[in-house]
Amino acid sequence: MLLTKVLPSTGSPWAAVASLLPLWLGMAAPAALFLARSRPKGLLRFRATDLVWGLGLGMGLRLVQGLLERADAQPFPTVQSIGGPFSSGWWLEQVLASGVVAPVAEEFFFRAVILVTVYRLLRRQTGAVAAGAAALLCSAGTFVLLHEAFALLSVSAAVQLFLVGSLCAAVVLFTGRIWGAVIAHVVYNVTFLALSVVGSVLR
């Protein structure tokens, strides 16, 4: 949920989104170059199992986040707590931007570019298992560092982000495809937004 940490609502739904365009373009440009020149065969292929992986991991990660945050003892999040007010602009600013665009951009950068590049660089010297482990750590670690650059993270938040990054990387390494990771990340973000809508209705 990087967008909610970068800027609160500014009155114009386009302002927060526009402020993140350079970041998204900075991730999209190397991802597009990588995909055009040297993507692994099958990386963009979609299988029905990718949907299963994505839905299962996204929901599982949200449950783990709830356990780490002791959600059973906390009130539901609300739209106001993550950059409200609840308006037509909120749907653009939060749901579209942080629910869909950000996860897609981040997955293609961290899991396609960084993960695959590190894996390829190390595979011949260290073997597939060691290269996969190193690539996973690099991908998940830089994912956490990007979020830390925009907002000071608690230990719990850093652990949650590292889990998201690690499991998404593991899906790509295990399946050879990116879509399971993309769907998992989208589900993880969107479920939080859905909980905030429920919390606002129940408030």
Rank of each mutant, 00 (worst) to 15 (best):
S88C: 00
L146E: 05
E107T: 15
W90I: 01
V113E: 10
L20Q: 15
P75K: 01
A157W: 05
L51I: 12
F174W: 14
G127K: 09
F174G: 06
T49D: 10
A15Q: 13
A157F: 06
A16R: 09
D72E: 12
V129W: 01
L35H: 06
P77K: 03
L152S: 14
A48N: 00
E69R: 15
R47C: 01
W179K: 00
W179R: 05
V17G: 02
L96F: 11
L35K: 13
L202K: 14
V197F: 05
A16W: 00
G42K: 09
W24C: 05
G66I: 09
V52S: 08
P22Y: 07
F34L: 07
R111Y: 07
A71R: 14
R177D: 02
V6Y: 05
L35W: 03
V201W: 12
K5S: 07
Q94H: 01
F143D: 03
A133L: 15
S98P: 05
L44C: 07
F162I: 04
E106H: 10
V197S: 04
A16N: 12
L115R: 00
G54Y: 12
I114M: 09
I178A: 03
L193T: 08
F86E: 08
Q94P: 02
W91H: 11
A112Y: 08
A157L: 02
S200D: 04
Q160L: 08
G11L: 04
G141S: 12
E106D: 02
G83Y: 10
M27L: 12
G66V: 07
L153Y: 10
E148G: 03
E148W: 13
P30S: 06
G54A: 04
W24G: 01
L121I: 11
L92C: 05
L63Q: 08
A134N: 01
G165D: 02
S196P: 13
S81Q: 14
G132N: 09
I82P: 00
A135C: 07
F86V: 05
